[in-house]
């Protein structure tokens, strides 16, 4: 402040002595001292934080603080607490059959929510966040199941996988009819036409007739005489509207030519039995369970 005090003529209030733009002056509206002291007190208080809590980065780490607080420890504690809170549900899931679980609405709520989380963590990369699937990765919302759509069948599939190398894995392989020169390209084309006709898509009648002969020779062993598939072989039903690798004629020809054999890992050992059971019930409840 300048030595002399200037008083604003209009208000009669002293100015701070600061001038902006040549003539803008600020009236002196003093801050209460206690307010200033509160500011100092908060600064002193903040020093307490440096002492008590982790604060300053060091070359090889950071200052840990007196009470050894760490967010990781907090999370660990939270997880332990959550696990304790979940214990009774987990025990119930381990003990009960899926049918019993479905009858208990509280338990079912826990299973569906937990199942959704586990699905997001483990299954979504291949099957999609909404279990909608992609080409080669089945949509789990629909009612078409390669290896069975009951809770028990789904649980078994999750546990042991498909062509996973696990001892109890689902195993089967569709031959590479084209690559291994079992069928000629013409025969493959005819067979594809016949397969399409199974689900009501019309085509060249002569080709379909020829394809039918090939189908009865080569395909019925797995897909059945009517093309409805067999769950034991994981052979899809060819008469329905769902195509894992595409339902256009070119897609089907490609499938016959190169064979198919999608792989799903065995989750036994990676996930505990309760989680697998929760996932099976969750997937079963997506709308297409049998």
């Amino acid at each position: 402040m300048a030595g002399h005090k200037e008083v604003d003529a209009v208000t009669g209030v002293e100015t701070t002595g600061h001038v902006w733009d040549g003539d803008l002056k600020e009236l002196n509206k003093p801050l209460p001292k206690w307010w200033l002291y509160v500011l100092y007190a908060t600064i002193v208080w903040s020093i307490g934080y440096w002492v008590v809590y982790p604060a300053w980065p060091l070359v090889d780490g950071y200052t840990r603080g007196m009470i050894g607080y760490s967010q990781r420890n907090e999370v660990t504690k939270d997880i332990v607490a959550a696990k304790e809170a979940q214990a009774k549900f987990v025990a119930a899931i381990a003990e009960r059959t899926p049918a019993e679980i479905e009858k208990d609405s509280d338990l079912m709520e826990f299973v569906l929510r937990g199942g959704a989380t586990q699905f997001g963590n483990n299954c979504a990369p291949c099957h999609g966040r909404g279990a909608q699937g992609f080409k080669g990765y089945p949509n789990l919302n629909d009612d078409d199941w390669l290896w069975g759509g009951s809770i028990e069948a789904i649980e078994q599939t999750i546990r042991n996988g498909i062509r996973s190398g696990h001892a109890d894995s689902h195993e089967s392989a569709m031959p590479r009819f084209g690559i291994d020169q079992i069928l000629t390209p013409a025969q493959i084309s005819d067979t594809a036409a016949f397969v399409l006709s199974l689900s009501g898509t019309s085509g060249d009648a002569a080709a379909i007739e020829r394809g039918k002969v090939v189908f009865e020779e080569q395909c019925v062993a797995c897909h059945g005489p009517e093309g409805k598939g067999t769950v034991e072989m994981g052979a899809p039903n060819l008469t329905d509207g769902i195509w894992l690798y595409g339902g256009q004629k070119a897609d089907i020809e490609e499938t016959i030519r190169t064979g198919r054999g999608g792989v799903m890992p065995a989750w036994a050992g990676k996930l505990d039995p309760v989680t697998i059971k929760m996932l099976a019930i969750y997937v079963h409840a997506l709308g297409g369970g049998q």
Partner: peptide, 18 residues
Amino acid sequence: EDRNPLFVKLSDGGIRNG
């Protein structure tokens, strides 16, 4: 409405919404 998936194609060719 279910957003993911918006709809599901069923084996009989029908469409299902959740």
